[in-house]
Design a protein around this nucleic acid. Structure first.
Lengths: 201, 201, 201, 201
DNA sequence: TATGAATGAGCTTTCATTCAT
DNA sequence: AATGAATGAAAGCTCATTCAT
């Protein structure tokens, strides 16, 4: 009898090993040989676990979703004051591993702009982000209703801005780390936002 | 040397015509034939003006810089109250032309993360952005000193956040336009930021 | 050595199961996995019984010879008047099973033209055909000598024509069945041949 | 200005050079490199003239049709007594070039049995053959009506048999030339057929 | 100078065969 | 003995670059 392997586990492992390569070289520029090398297997072996190169990207994106979801879930419960804990959440994301995922995420996002071929990957992600945004908006709304926030704030607009500005910050930070201390900027910004949002401010 | 002027003009024209293709297909996926077609010239002719495909990207990025610089310059002089006119600037950027440039800009940014091969292109861009950020910081500083802004604001941190959050907003907007009305979000956000930054608020 | 019997039996069985696939897909296009699947065994198991894929083809061709020989033998004894019973023999061959064998036979024949690699397989077949032709020629000769056939008939040439024309008919029929009713054509042709060959005609 | 080439002519030339290879190795077994080598051009150059390998086969089959049509047309006008001139026609076909085409023709025929993917190529050929068969049948009919042939002959059945038996003869001859002198067999057979068909016989 | 014909390195994917279990 | 996981050679095809006209 041949070696017994857990195909799903193997797929996930190969995908996990591929993340760094995809991040560092990009999907197009990464060769199937690169991916095989990353898992120290033969090129042909890859095709026992994935139909096409695209299929590998799909698994990588699933792996990414799992990580992101984990991150979001882990941080949601501490999201009492939305502005309060976002820095902590971002902080959590500042690992090498998450950095790779973030690059892939931006690349997928761009590819999605270019071709509907990638849209399947992103639907899930869009949903996650939308959910996160809605949750954030609801928190803002609640606090606004309880008198904690100013009257003239549009919770949806603010939530949209907060979420997307985090991506902007991450991009600027990761792609040019020399320019600034992101942790300091984040704490400053959120201290500022908090006081300006709060009615007492 | 009028020849050189012609040559440079031709390079710029070809680059300008290539922008839409690069944005829509990406650098890798764009073939040299695509670029030649966009300028209705022969593939071989292209190589009279550019040494390599990479060389074309370089010129495209230069063209991009010129456009961005133009945009920044045009808007800088009206940047009295920084928060005040950013929406106007962004608004200016929301053309199809600028959208293409923005995509290329993000792609270059990512490629820069991946390979130092692209770093030459981006040094210039980083400088522009840094300049813009510094200018913004100085404006904030000035207004703070003149009593227009609150005491506890770090102008550098705020400037960094403002600039990068604009990129985040643009990415989220452009890559999923269905989700939100960016013009409304921008006006809301800036109304909010303005009142919260201002001492009077 | 009962083991060897088992081994040979297994080879024959696997070959028999492979016939349909080889006929439907062709030797090249048939994968080793296809063949293993047809016998519901593992791909590795196949290699306990066959050294190479070519080896399987060899056994298939042997299986084919056995079938053809059976068919010929079964029909030979009733070959009193050669023209008389050929239709019956052909008729016997018009099963799905024999159709598959016929396709493989033509393919082997072509491959033999292309490469001496296949010549071993075909030597046997050529011998069968030659034997059949000779037998046919002898029957014609006999009948001619006994005054049943015309004087000016060359038995060898006629036998050659009869045998090869059967292949032509089968090819044209099988590869474009819509065009004609082969059974009718056969009966017509043999009725005609018989009367024209016969002295009385 | 680059070299000016007649694309259609080039396609035809490449196809003509490919015929021998296709015949000797078969379509599947022939690599694109083989085909390029046969015309002493680079592999990439081929793709300036053909979209796919299949596309090359298509041109080869067109080339084949042109040859076959030429052959048929050239021989038709001398087809007064159908049985009379077929040997001459066949004779014409016994060149190396036609031999190659015949092998490809049989291979296409088999492939068509296997996959509808090849059916386009063969439709034309089937039409040619059908036309030829019909013409033959009409000639037989005419001669029968004019009293030249026996009453009980079915012209369609006989035409079908004559045409397909020629393919059978060719296959048997080409694939095993050592066995018989096809020219002799043909002359014998047609002498025999003619006398047996003719009323006077 | 302008052009596209020519090229081969390099890509993804397939599959006969080997091998560890 | 039986199995399928593992493998890399080899396939068809693309395309940046060169070159002859």
């Amino acid at each position: 009898m041949p070696k017994i392997v857990d195909r799903e586990l193997r797929r996930a492992t190969i995908a996990r090993n591929a993340i760094e390569i995809f991040a560092k070289k990009g999907f197009q520029q990464t060769t199937v040989q690169d991916i095989a090398d990353a898992s120290k297997i033969g090129k042909g072996t890859l095709y026992h676990y994935f139909h096409t190169k695209m299929d590998i990207l799909e698994e990588v994106s699933n792996e990414m979703f799992r990580n992101i979801k984990e991150l979001i879930d882990a941080s949601l419960f501490q999201l009492e004051n939305p502005a309060e804990n976002l820095p902590a959440i971002i902080e959590t994301a500042l690992t090498k591993e998450m950095e790779y995922l973030f690059i892939i995420y931006v690349e997928l996002w761009i590819n999605n702009y270019r071709s509907t071929k990638y849209s399947d990957f992103l639907e899930k992600l869009k949903d996650y982000i939308a959910d996160f945004r809605k949750l954030l908006a609801r928190k803002i709304e609640n606090r606004k209703n309880s008198g904690g926030f100013k009257e003239d704030i549009d919770p949806n607009a603010l939530a949209y801005y907060l979420v997307s500005s985090m991506d902007g910050l991450l991009i600027h930070y990761m792609l040019d780390k020399s320019q600034f201390n992101i942790r300091y900027v984040l704490s400053e910004v959120f201290r500022f936002l908090q006081t300006s949002i709060s009615r007492e401010a």
